[in-house]
């Protein structure tokens, strides 16, 4: 491209009189310097984006290796490198981590079980009031999580008054809330994939003798699977990182990891929080690598991009 344009400009220069030749040469030079600016601008943008996204993580990870006993504060780069804070992480943070992991797994699994059929119905059926149902499934995204948290708490009180079973501060109570906020992510991605789904794939399967159920199992489901994985991953992350909803539904001794960190920061801050944060960052990295190996992250990013859109 650039060679060709250079050639064109050069050809102009040859044909031209000395006067216009100088003008053409100037044009070529300006064009080249514009290319150089474009090139560097692109790099600067990329670097800035990376710094913006990763600087907080790097600071947290770096500062977690700063020793210095009781008087420690966030210091980056670490003044006296040490891993001492990794041994100071309180046990309840690990317990909270375990709870959050179980909760996020259950929430994303349940969101898939509820969300995939919902998405199928929303895209495929001609149910009256389909749009309204779609709005209902997306609504958890539109309600601030704090409001949802209060609403759930109030509901649990009401249900508790009536039945004697108080769900707040229980696993089941937390799980219901988390499933609630996780569903829109699964419904959203699966609806997107289904809307782009080439229905001729299903017709092909039927014409080859597969029953509707077999067609769903052997063709539809595998083709939309990247979308399901993507939705499940979002759902997991949303549940795993949630504070505003969970803070209302946890009880002492029964606390999710983000809520635990939150109260630790408020009450007795020390660099062990940075250490445990670093462990979670590493854990997430490992999850990402595993997902990349098993499904392929690009598949998740361009959800359902296997079929050709038309």
């Amino acid at each position: 491209m650039s060679a060709r344009e250079d050639g064109l400009i050069a050809a102009d220069a040859v044909r031209a009189t000395p006067d216009t030749r100088a003008v053409a040469a100037g044009k070529a030079m300006r064009w080249r310097s514009r290319q150089a600016v474009n090139f560097w601008l692109k790099w600067v943008m990329v670097v800035l984006a990376y710094v913006f996204l990763h600087a907080p993580l790097i600071v947290v990870i770096g500062a977690s290796f700063n020793g210095g006993g009781e008087y420690a504060a966030i210091e980056f780069p670490p003044a006296s490198p040490s891993i001492e804070w990794y041994f100071e992480i309180p046990m309840q943070q690990f317990e909270a981590l375990g709870l959050s992991f179980a909760l996020a797994s259950l929430a994303s699994l349940s969101a898939v079980i509820i969300g995939v059929p919902a998405a199928l119905g929303l895209v495929r059926s001609n149910l009256p009031g389909k749009t309204l149902i779609g709005v209902v499934f997306r609504s958890p995204l539109q309600i601030p999580a704090v409001v949802s948290g209060i609403a759930f708490l109030q509901m649990y009180y009401l249900v508790g008054d009536a039945t004697g079973f108080f769900a707040q501060g229980s696993f089941i109570g937390l799980a219901i809330g988390h499933i609630f906020i996780a569903i829109p992510y699964v419904v959203g991605t699966v609806v997107a994939v289904l809307q782009r789904f080439d229905h001729r794939l299903e017709e092909a399967a039927l014409s080859l003798g597969a029953s509707p159920w077999r067609t769903f199992r052997r063709v539809t489901l595998p083709v939309i699977m990247p979308g399901v994985y993507a939705g499940a991953l979002y759902a997991f992350m949303v549940s795993f990182g949630d504070v505003p909803l969970s803070i209302f539904l946890t009880a002492p001794g029964y606390v999710t990891y983000p809520v635990e960190l939150f109260s630790a920061l408020e009450n007795d801050f020390d660099p062990s929080i940075l250490a445990s944060g670093t462990l979670v960052i590493l854990f997430c990295l490992v999850v990402m690598i595993v997902v990349q190996r098993v499904v392929g992250l690009d598949a998740l990013l361009k959800i359902g991009g296997t079929g050709k859109g038309r």
């Binding site: 080439d198 017709e203 092909a204 399967a205 083709v223 699977m225």
Partner: peptide
């Protein structure tokens, strides 16, 4: 269709991508 014993070729092939 699945009980008709037919074979069909589609314009965009509709091969199963997976």
């Amino acid at each position: 269709p699945q009980k008709r014993g037919i074979g069909m070729v589609f314009q965009d092939y509709a091969l199963f991508p997976h």
